[in-house]
Design a protein around this nucleic acid. Sequence first.
DNA 1: CAGTGGTCTAGACCACCAA
DNA 2: TGGTGGTCTAGACCACTGT
Lengths: 241, 241
Amino acid sequence: MKKPLYVSLANAIKNNISKHQYQTMKLPDERTLAEEFAVSRSSIKRAIQLLADQGIIFKKQGSGNFINPLFLRNKTALDYTGDNVGLTTSIVTNGKQQQIEVLNLDVVKPDAAIKENLFLTADDFVYSFKRLRKLDEVPILIEQSYIPVKVFPQLSKKLLEHSLFNYLEDQENTIINRAYLDVTTEPSSVEDQDLLHLKTTEPVGIMAGIFFVDDGTPFEYSSMRLHYRYLNFSTFVNLGK
Amino acid sequence: MKKPLYVSLANAIKNNISKHQYQTMKLPDERTLAEEFAVSRSSIKRAIQLLADQGIIFKKQGSGNFINPLFLRNKTALDYTGDNVGLTTSIVTNGKQQQIEVLNLDVVKPDAAIKENLFLTADDFVYSFKRLRKLDEVPILIEQSYIPVKVFPQLSKKLLEHSLFNYLEDQENTIINRAYLDVTTEPSSVEDQDLLHLKTTEPVGIMAGIFFVDDGTPFEYSSMRLHYRYLNFSTFVNLGK
DNA sequence: CAGTGGTCTAGACCACCAA
DNA sequence: TGGTGGTCTAGACCACTGT
């Protein structure tokens, strides 16, 4: 589990920025940095690319690399770790305890939309299940999911009572680490209001999408209806090079 | 405006995928591709990295590069062009005509939050303005924005009647191409219901954030309240390498 | 024009995966 | 253990920015 050089370099540069090592909002140029750290310019470039992907710095060809002022002010919002891709999509948990209530589990014939989303042929069956997630016993999210029987036949109600993805990673050596997600919002339905304790005027946020195993196999189609206070989606949009 | 080699390579590979040139969900290995296209392996690697960033393929060390089945089925959702960063954040326009109505424009002393978001000192004034945007005369979003007077003193009501960012790019050679955005949802206020023609049970989507010039200068803080049908945020989450 | 980031190569060697 | 992707180097040359 050795970290690549460029990750260490990126961390070193990040530290220097945090400690206001650089007097201006501009980093030293890449050739100078390469000399200072005694590495090739390519490695510096890779490190800087990483920082740019994380929104910590902005690159501007011909002019230099610039520190994102947001990073200086509010490090936590940008302090990514490990494999993060520069996008934070999260249910605001604040370290509270999570509970899962399994509302139902069935095997059904998928309708056309589900079939298309999971790339199934006519004969495939899917598990269909609904779960209610809570934080410190406060309900925050209704999840309706579909998983093809053939990709995970051993699914059971017992397994659903805890995080499926953690189980897969720990017990089955299968990592679900890609997803295509669609975020929208809608007025709450009667069921939403009931389960999530919402007033009629209060909406739900919806996150729906396909989750993939890392070799591209579609694993699950899921539609999550969130209590509106728990939908929060932060991201950098970075159209610069 | 010559395209780099790796962009052309990425397009070529993308075309081959679209034309089902590769029989399986797996791409040929990088060394083979390098030979076929008669370029260095580094260039192939860069091209494949680009496709991975766009969510078109998944990489898996030690195993190979895999085609995202979503790309084969629904090319448009993934068919990024040019400088796109793998994130589609858009108001669904469908080619309709956009109108802008300027509701007000003032110069004010910023409150603490605005000051913090725009990195201002005590003495700085800001322009505060509210605009209503419509598509084919249907109102879809209310925008409340703040721009420091010192970074764009020539702001006027006339300028606000059209896209400010386009004006900056065309006339001032200033490009706003980075943003930190926060997406949430809320019940609609009375003003929302009035301006956006919403029922009391219908919510607004909120996109709020800071927009940066590409050298890192914070340019604008903006909070946009969208008619809920027009909030749609699609993205790939890719935690694989 | 000087400064600075972007692209590209050729090749060595490392790390992970599946059989 | 062979196949395949990941990291890294050293250096040439290109492209953009601002004075």
